[in-house]
């Protein structure tokens, strides 16, 4: 499966086309997510944005991350959001009250932040930065099976953080149940 992706991306500017298409979808969906007044529509656009982001991860040869992006983010987390929105059952006038008054201020801050980050990206120059992505090291360990390549360090070098994550998830489950109980 993965070598097919790899060949497709490498063939005649396929990488650039895939990158620009996925980026356009991701950014357009993100803008629509912020602009839509109805929170259900916002969730749907954010799901599309995350799927576009998964496509960007594929162009970076991070197939496993792309899969968990779709499964965990676009699947599980966004369903949780949708579920809570449906549960709260906001009335139409509640939604109408949520107008967008602070736009100029926010736009100025975001524009400054964006241009500073772009300036830093352009200013930073290391040898690897000059190379196009296709010419970077191909990661021989990654070419065949990226799940294996991510699993071995995860269960050897990063075993302790991995186990701590399970404790964190348990704490989150207990916390969520405790918070939503009617009487604490």
């Amino acid at each position: 499966m993965e070598p097919i992706f790899h060949d497709l991306l490498a063939a005649g500017g396929g990488h650039a086309v895939a990158f620009y298409a996925c980026s356009a979808v991701t950014i357009a969906a993100a803008i629509l997510m912020v602009m839509k007044k109805n929170p259900v529509a916002s969730v749907m656009w954010l799901v599309l944005s995350f799927i576009g982001l998964a496509g960007i991860y594929v162009t970076l040869q991070s197939y496993f991350i792309a899969v968990i992006q779709v499964l965990v983010y676009a699947g599980a987390i966004m369903v949780l959001f949708l579920f809570v929105i449906m549960l709260l059952n906001l009335r139409r006038e509640d939604i109408a009250k949520m107008e967008l008054p602070k736009v100029p201020f926010a736009g100025v801050i975001a524009a400054i932040l964006f241009f500073v980050s772009v300036f830093l990206v352009i200013k930073a120059s290391t040898p690897a930065f000059e190379k196009p992505v296709d010419a970077l090291l191909g990661e021989p360990a990654l070419a065949g099976d990226s799940v294996r390549a991510i699993g071995i360090p995860l269960f050897s070098q990063w075993l302790l953080p991995f186990e701590i994550t399970s404790v964190l998830l348990l704490a989150a489950i207990v916390g969520a149940v405790a918070l939503t109980k009617k009487k604490l």
């Binding site: 650039a16 950014i27 162009t59 932040l113 964006f114 980050s117 352009i122 930065f129």
Partner: peptide, 17 residues
Amino acid sequence: EIHIAHYLIVAGILFSI
């Protein structure tokens, strides 16, 4: 040709949004 900088700029746009 796509450079790493392209990806960083997309990330900057998403963060700003």
